[in-house]
């Protein structure tokens, strides 16, 4: 009790920490906004192979992702086990690629469109047949910048 009385006498010398939460929240919101969550849920199993001669993808907004792999276990009943293509968050066929590319393209400013890259995230176990079909379709659609997504090979 006496403590309180003492304090009331003087002007409080403590710095108010009441605004600290606001500052922290601001930081929190900044991180929450800036971090891009993986926008599409993977429906196919993709384990990209390892390679050494890698280059980085620069601007995320200029990249569209094409996934190829076997459907996840829970989709086995409906989609079977043969490798399939996934565009956005649903299964697709090679014929859907041009529309997918176009949908991505309209979101990109015109002066950057020549730098659009397609990232092919392909499972290592997949055979080249479907990959080849996708590549052919990409070439037909004029999407020539392609990135074979792969992990850095660990040093032996």
């Amino acid at each position: 009790m006496s403590k309180f009385q003492k304090k009331r006498g003087k002007a409080s010398p403590e710095v108010s920490t009441a605004s600290l939460p606001d500052i922290i929240f601001m930081l929190l919101f900044f991180f929450m906004v800036v971090t891009v969550m993986r926008n599409s849920e993977l429906k196919v199993k993709v384990v990209t192979p390892e390679a050494t001669e890698l280059s980085k993808l620069e601007e995320k907004s200029l990249v569209n992702y094409l996934y190829i792999g076997k459907p996840m276990e829970k989709y086995h009943e409906t989609y079977g086990t043969t490798p399939r293509l996934q565009l956005g968050d649903k299964f697709a066929t090679v014929a859907d690629i041009p529309i997918f590319l176009e949908k991505h393209k309209v979101k990109v400013p015109e002066n950057k469109r020549s730098r659009i890259t397609s990232s092919l995230r392909v499972d290592g176990e997949v055979t080249m047949g479907i990959v080849q079909d996708v590549k052919t379709q990409l070439r037909k659609s004029g999407q020539l910048r392609v990135n074979y997504s792969s992990k850095k090979e660990r040093e032996k």
Binding site: R38, S55, R139, V146, S149
Partner: peptide, 16 residues
């Protein structure tokens, strides 16, 4: 949040 660094082999396909 893992800042997923996307790396890979960059290829330029020939025009169709």
């Amino acid at each position: 949040t893992t800042i997923a660094e996307d790396k890979g082999i960059l290829v330029k396909l020939p025009p169709w």
